[in-house]
Nucleic acid binder design. Sequence first.
DNA 1: CAACATTTGTAGTGATCACTGCGAAACCAT
DNA 2: ATGGTTTCGCAGTGATCACTACAAATGTTG
Lengths: 178, 178
Amino acid sequence: MGHKHSKAEILAGALATAFDDGLSQVTFGRIAKRLGISDRIVVYYFPTKDDLIGEVLYAIGAELQATLAPTFSKPVANHHELLRTTWPILARPEADPVFALFFEAGGLAAAGREPFRTLVPQLVDAWIEWTAELMRGTPAHQRAEAEAGIAVLDGLLLLRQLSGSEVADRAARRIWAG
Amino acid sequence: MGHKHSKAEILAGALATAFDDGLSQVTFGRIAKRLGISDRIVVYYFPTKDDLIGEVLYAIGAELQATLAPTFSKPVANHHELLRTTWPILARPEADPVFALFFEAGGLAAAGREPFRTLVPQLVDAWIEWTAELMRGTPAHQRAEAEAGIAVLDGLLLLRQLSGSEVADRAARRIWAG
DNA sequence: CAACATTTGTAGTGATCACTGCGAAACCAT
DNA sequence: ATGGTTTCGCAGTGATCACTACAAATGTTG
């Protein structure tokens, strides 16, 4: 198979564009310009924009999971324990860009924009399921505690994005205390 | 002063466009088409897009505050009490559209897009300050409890937007219980 | 009414968007 | 080499974007 350009290379360019300029700036033209190729090739491998965004979202999900993987290793009893053990890892500057993308995707999903509207909830659900597996107890307990943990984590991480790390850390300490 | 069209009328059209199609669809042309006027008039009253979006965000902030006002009436001791009293009011279908817009703005802010990047944190801070006034205790306690309450509320409301009301309510119940 | 400022219509700017038609390479198996 | 498929350059489509020049209409004020 002849290939000067590969699909993986273009997807990497798309991800780089997303991290640099945001998801809403991931366009055929911008990716092509960044890679110094014709936008025709980008369209060739990703026939529609939804295909492109879909694969970018999937890759971001994988990136997010890779970010979380080292943290989510040993089982916990409830969402409080989850939060206390994961927050120090998640609230690091290196993790901020991927969460920024996640919240942008979440916002576009909340606004009803396709394909975010359909894909982001799936991503969140996968995250919940994955978290639930680390919980001890009955399946219902696992699921509910995972949902609670994700909710509080999302709120804290969003506050971190919008108001900075000091505010978010202070809020986290209050939540642990309560 | 002669005026067939008023600035308030155009701003109302902009808000309607935002609620219907999302913040990212608030453009000069779409507002003009919705109102059946020339986009020239829209540009006349809002010389740049940042002016337009800025005023739309301000109006959404006012709308959000109006949504919260009846709830945030009597003082509370800490963020737990705040959550328990406000959640039943906030987790109503009528409140969802304005929160959808808030999360879209938050996502664009997280992505670094102006003017969201500068305006949304101000909006969040105003919301925190406003919530802090309802807290009992020292100023530091007020502020920290308000931040914690906002964080958890945001997380739950975002989960509600992305995963639906059942999931969010279940998570809320777990957080109260904990 | 005359002088003036505010408001609005018509038209157009150059940019970017997602996406396409078409033909020429480049690659492959036979 | 020959034929067929995959890849890709070039050019262009119509749409939308923020924004502007210019002049006519519409006010307001003296």
